[in-house]
Nucleic acid binder design. Structure first.
Lengths: 351, 351
DNA sequence: TTGTATGCGTTATCAG
DNA sequence: CTGATAACGCATACAA
C-alpha cells in the first residue's frame, strides 16, 4: 500500500485522512480545525504510527527545544546530580537535553560548544574550566560556577557564606584550631570564595587557622605531609578541618584514620558539596556544606529559557546549608534503615 | 553587509567565496574539489563563522549521528558512570548523545522513547524496567541489564559468575555461614542471576547460607530485623554477607556497625557494582564484584552502531572481577594519597 | 475553515 | 571539477 517502507510523513497522514497537508499541520500545532477533520487526522496518524519529525520542524521554526549541558563528567556525584536535575527541569518544560562530557579537557570544552552549536540547540548550560572559551553571543548560555562576563549569566551557590558557615560550625562543635585544605584548579572560579569566607570568619573571630592549597589535582600527598607534620606524640595540633570539596574531606578522613587519629573524636572534618551516597539524600558521605543542586539546576534552566533577557542577573548565588554526616560530633540518624515515608522528593532508587 | 543578522548559511559562504553552493557542500563533505577553490571556501567559511546545520543535513541524509541514552537517573553512581562512558564512546565515534532520565517511572520510559524517536536519533541505548516497552523495530535499540527479545540485543555483566565469585571470595577469606540480601524490582532482569550464581556455588560446595529478598525498594527495615534476629548475646550467627548492590552493602555495613558488630572483623560484606567514590577508581566504596562499566558502555555503543546487524548476539555478558574495598579482611592501600601515576585511564578529577 | 505554494539549509543528481 | 536544481518534512502566509 505505502509507496515507501520508511517512516510516515504528514503527507501520508493527509492522504490517509483525505485532507490536505496544511490541515494535518494545523491539527498538530493546535490551530483551529473543525472537530470532524481533527478526528479523521488523528485517527489516520495513529493508524500510520506517525510521529512529528522535529528535525524538519526545527529547520522551519528555527528552534529545536533542545538544550545542551556541558560538564566534566557524570561519574562525579556533583556533576551526576547536576545532570540529573537539569534533565528533569528541562523535561518538565518540554525540552530535550544533549549531554556533552569534556573530561576536564579545555580543548574538549571548546569542541563540545562547537558540536552542540552545529546541532542548533536553543541554549547551553555549561560547567567549564577554560577561561578563554569562545561563546557565541547569539546563543543563550548559562555558566555554572564560573563567571565569564556580564553577558553570560552565572549560577552558583553562596560559596562565601558556605565557607563562613563551615568555620562557625566547627567552632560551635568544639574545635579550636582549624585547617583549610583545597585542591584548586589553575583558573579562578566561584568556589574560591569558600576559602575567603572561611578565612574571613576565622580572622574576625580570632580563631587560629592555616590554609593549604595545592594545585596538583591528582595528588593528595601534600596534605598527607601537612597532617604528619602537625602530629606530635600521636596528637594533632589541630582539631577541625574544612575541605573545599567532599572528595577532599573524604580522603582527609582516610588519611587521618590511617595516621591513627579518630574522626570525629579528635579531629572534625567538614566538606563542601553535600554528596549523597548512591544519590540517596538520606545517606550523607561526610559532614558538609550542602549545595542546593536542584535549585541551581532549576535556576540555570529558568535563566536560560527566560524570554525576558533584559532583567537577568549576571551572578546568582543560591543559599547553602550545613548537614551532619558523621565526620563531626553529632549523631547521624540512620533514617534510611527505617524506610521513613517523609522523603522530600518522593524519589525511589530502585537500583 | 549581510542581508540578515542570523547565522550564515552555505549560500552565504558560496557568495562570499564566489563559487556555487554545490562546491561549498562538496568541500564540507570531503568530496573532490580543486585546492584553490577549497581554500577560498574555507577562508570564506572562517570569515563568516559558518557552521554546518546538522538539522538540515539530517533532514536530507536521514541520519543524525545522535544516539539517545535512557536511564533512571545519573544521581546513582552506576548510572552516572554508564552515562559517562557511553558519552565518551559516542563522542569518539563522532556521535552526539541525548540523555533522557526516567526516574524509575515506567511511563516515563515509554515517553522518553517517543520523545527521542521524534528527534530522529540513530539509535537508543536504554536501561529500563518496563517489561511492556514498545520498541520500534526499525530503530536500533540496545538494552542494558534487561532482556526483551531476540530482536533487542542486551548487554550486561556476567551476573551469574559474579554471584559465584562473591560466595567463593567470602569463603576464601574465612567466612563460614553466609547471607544473601537483595532488594529486587518487580520485574525479572539480568541482575537476578547474581543470586542464582551465589546460591548454586554455596550448594555445590556445601556452604550454609540463607537468602532474604525484599521487594520494597524504599525500606531497609526487613534487613535490619533479619540481622537483629541473628544476633545472639552480641554475636552474629553469620560471618559473611553478599549484597545484590553496593548500595545495599553500604547500608548493611551501617546497620551492622550500629548493632555493634565490627566490619570486617566479625562479618565480611561484599556488594555488587564496583562503586567508586567520587568517580575515582582508586576509591572503592565497599568490597565488591566490579562491573566492567566502561566495557559495557563500549559494547553497547558498538552493537548499536554496528553496520552488520545479522551477526549480533542477543545477550552479551562481560566479565566481572572482585575488588577489595575495606569491608572484607584484606588491606586496602590508599593509593590515591600518594598520587601514583599509574592510573589506568589517565583520568584526572579536577573537582 | 481548508487547501496550496513556498522556503528553511543541506545533499545529491546530472548536465556542463 | 563545477554549478544549477530538485528533494527532505514541516510550518506558514496567502488564496480559495
Amino acid at each position: 500500500m505505502n509507496k515507501k517502507s520508511s517512516t510516515p510523513t504528514m503527507k501520508d497522514v493527509a492522504r490517509e485522512a483525505g485532507v490536505s497537508l496544511g490541515t494535518v499541520s494545523n491539527v498538530f500545532n493546535g490551530a483551529q480545525v473543525s472537530e470532524s477533520y481533527k478526528i479523521k487526522v488523528e485517527e489516520a496518524a495513529r493508524k500510520l504510527g506517525y510521529k512529528v519529525n522535529r528535525y524538519a520542524r526545527g529547520l522551519k521554526t528555527n528552534q529545536t527545544r533542545t538544550v545542551a549541558f556541558i560538564c566534566p563528567g557524570t561519574d562525579h556525584p556533583f556533576f551526576g546530580d547536576l545532570a540529573n536535575y537539569i534533565n528533569k527541569a528541562l523535561l518538565e518544560r518540554g525540552y530535550r537535553m544533549m549531554l556533552a562530557i569534556t573530561q576536564y579537557s579545555l580543548d574538549m570544552e571548546q569542541k563540545c560548544i562547537q558540536m552542540v552549536t552545529e546541532n542548533k540547540v536553543d541554549g547551553i548550560i555549561a560547567l567549564t574550566y577554560n577561561p578563554d572559551l569562545r561563546i557565541d553571543p547569539g546563543l543563550p548560555f548559562v555558566s555554572i560556577d564560573r563567571f565569564y562576563s556580564d553577558a553570560v549569566p552565572c549560577v552558583s551557590c553562596d560559596n562565601y557564606s558556605g565557607g563562613t558557615l563551615a568555620a562557625r560550625k566547627l567552632i560551635e562543635l568544639g574545635a579550636t584550631k582549624l585547617l583549610f585544605f583545597n585542591i584548586a584548579p589553575d583558573v579562578p572560579g566561584e568556589p574560591d570564595k569558600r576559602q575567603y569566607g572561611f578565612e574571613s570568619w576565622c580572622r574576625s573571630n580570632g580563631i587560629p587557622f592555616e590554609s593549604l592549597i595545592s594545585s596538583d589535582s591528582l595528588a593528595f600527598r601534600p596534605f598527607l605531609q601537612s597532617i604528619r607534620e602537625r602530629i606530635h606524640d600521636g596528637k594533632p595540633d589541630f582539631d577541625g578541618i574544612f575541605c573545599n570539596t567532599d572528595k577532599m574531606a573524604y580522603v582527609v578522613c582516610q588519611i587521618l584514620k590511617e595516621q591513627g587519629i579518630r574522626v570525629p573524636e579528635e579531629v572534625q572534618v567538614i566538606g563542601f558539596d553535600g554528596t549523597n551516597m548512591f544519590g540517596d539524600y538520606l545517606m550523607p558521605c561526610v559532614s558538609s556544606i550542602v549545595q542546593p543542586v536542584q535549585d541551581m539546576a532549576e535556576t540555570a534552566v529558568s535563566l536560560l529559557l527566560s524570554s525576558d533577557k533584559s532583567q537577568i542577573p549576571t551572578l546568582t548565588c543560591l543559599p547553602v546549608h550545613y548537614r551532619a554526616g558523621g565526620t563531626t560530633r553529632e549523631a547521624v540518624k540512620l533514617d534510611y534503615i527505617y524506610g521513613t515515608e517523609d522523603r522530600e522528593q518522593g524519589r525511589s532508587n530502585g537500583k
